[in-house]
């Protein structure tokens, strides 16, 4: 009785589902009707099984998995007999193995098409001396774009920006800056620029705290102290963010004064080589 009712409800709900679809009644009506259809069908089957079908425990012998010794021996002998025949032609067997191996290697070789070898164009960014800074809409950044306490994401002008090109540009009063040796003239009018690619796992270091001058990556909370040269102060980042040296031209526009101070992006095996190449 209950089972029959469940099946009837299910049927009605299925019709309801079709109706909801035809009327374009929306996700929730579709879900409601379909889950009633599914659920009452499931409950009906469960009731049927539990109430109307045999529920007494049955017993079944468990099969033996380990074969009887003589069968094991016979199998081994059959195999050995064949193998002795092969072993008499030892050279042929060896050649066959080598040929199959070579064929395997050959057929897998085109997997190289999946990607270029990493040596070509490894970690070249679009930044070099004299490139203008533009924002995401293509506007050039000038010396008056930001107030002190401002932040903007910038890209190198004149090229489709690559992932490693993104730079976070901030403006900080010069007296607050405490950058490493040799970077004194990298910050015209307090503009400081660092790679926006986190040195931990590559997320954009998008979170800028104007008080305390911290850059923070929202993925794993790697935190960088901007005024010290974006050195990591908390979280998993092992390395500082590379800085982009800046200068201003006569029209008051900002330009890159060179490439980054170090390798962009997360650590990787051959980081050392890149470091030498870039610096």
């Amino acid at each position: 009785m209950r089972v029959a009712l469940a099946f009837l409800v299910s049927m009605a709900a299925s019709v309801g589902f079709i109706g909801a679809y035809q009327l374009d009644a929306g996700t929730q009506w579709l879900a409601l009707s379909l889950s009633i259809a599914l659920g009452s069908l499931g409950a009906g089957l469960a009731w049927w099984s539990r109430r109307l079908m045999p529920q007494e425990s049955s017993e079944e012998a468990r099969p033996t998995l380990a074969p009887p010794p003589e069968e094991e021996r016979e199998t081994a002998e059959t195999f050995e007999a064949g193998r002795r025949g092969i072993r008499r032609r030892g050279l042929l067997g060896g050649l066959l193995a080598a040929a199959v191996g070579a064929l395997g290697l050959g057929t897998v070789w085109p997997a190289r098409s999946l990607g270029p070898p990493p040596s070509s164009g490894f970690r070249q960014t679009g930044w070099r001396e004299g490139v203008h800074l533009i924002d995401e809409t293509g506007r050039r950044i000038g010396i008056d774009t930001l107030d002190f306490g401002g932040v903007v994401t910038v890209f190198p002008e004149g090229r489709d920006p690559a992932a490693d090109d993104q730079v976070v540009l901030m403006r900080i009063p010069l007296e607050d800056l405490d950058l490493p040796e040799g970077r004194a003239n990298w910050t015209p009018d307090g503009y400081v620029a660092f790679s926006k690619v986190c040195t931990h796992a590559g997320c954009p270091v998008g979170l800028y705290q104007d008080v305390g001058y911290l850059l923070l990556c929202p993925c794993h909370q790697a935190t960088f102290d901007v005024v010290q040269g974006a050195v990591p102060v908390f979280g998993p980042a092992p390395r500082e963010l590379p800085q982009l040296p800046l200068r201003a031209d006569r029209d008051g526009l900002l330009l890159a004064a060179g490439d980054f101070s170090g390798p962009v992006g997360p650590d990787r095996w051959r980081l050392g080589e890149v470091k030498d190449g870039d610096a």
Binding site: T27, L32, S35, L38, G44, L45, A46
Partner: peptide, 22 residues
């Protein structure tokens, strides 16, 4: 018995997932 029960479970699982989906 068991097959019916198990197929019933399938529909119940599908019902729960579908309900969540909506």
């Amino acid at each position: 018995s068991y097959a019916t029960l198990s197929v019933g479970l399938f529909f119940l699982v599908a019902a729960v997932l579908n309900l969540m989906g909506g």
